[in-house]
C-alpha cells in the first residue's frame, strides 16, 4: 500500500457496505441509511478501510480485505492512553 498523502483532515472511509439495490419507481422513497451491527460468527467479515499509524512506516490506509487469505485478529479498544 502506498504512503498516504497527509493532511490535517482526511475523509473517514469506514465500513465498506454493499450498496442497497435502487428501489423501483413505484416504491421509490427516501431511504435513510442506517448503519448497524453486521458482524456475525460464521458470516463474512464486514470490510472496512481506515487510516492507520504503522511503526516504522508512518501513516497509511489499511483495508481489511487486503488481508484476505490469511488469518486476521482485529482488536477494538476504548482509547489510547487509557488504563487497561
Amino acid at each position: 500500500m502506498a504512503e498516504m498523502k497527509d493532511g490535517c483532515v482526511q475523509p473517514v472511509k469506514g465500513p465498506i457496505i454493499a450498496p442497497v439495490p435502487a428501489a423501483t419507481a413505484s416504491e421509490a422513497q427516501p431511504i435513510k441509511e442506517v448503519v448497524r451491527m453486521q458482524a456475525q460468527v460464521g458470516k463474512e467479515a464486514p470490510d472496512f478501510e481506515a487510516t492507520a499509524f504503522v511503526a516504522g512506516e508512518g501513516f497509511k490506509p489499511v483495508k481489511l480485505s487486503d488481508y484476505k487469505g490469511q488469518w486476521v485478529v482485529i482488536c477494538f479498544y476504548p482509547g489510547d492512553f487509557t488504563f487497561v
Binding site: V12, P15, V35, M37, P46, F48, A50, A55, K60
Partner: peptide, 22 residues
Amino acid sequence: EGGVPFPMLSDAGGKIGTVYGV
C-alpha cells in the same frame, strides 16, 4: 520493546465499531 508492531487504525466516528457492534 519496539512498541506495537501492527497497524493501529483510526475509527474516527466509530462507524467501523458500529458495524462490529462495539
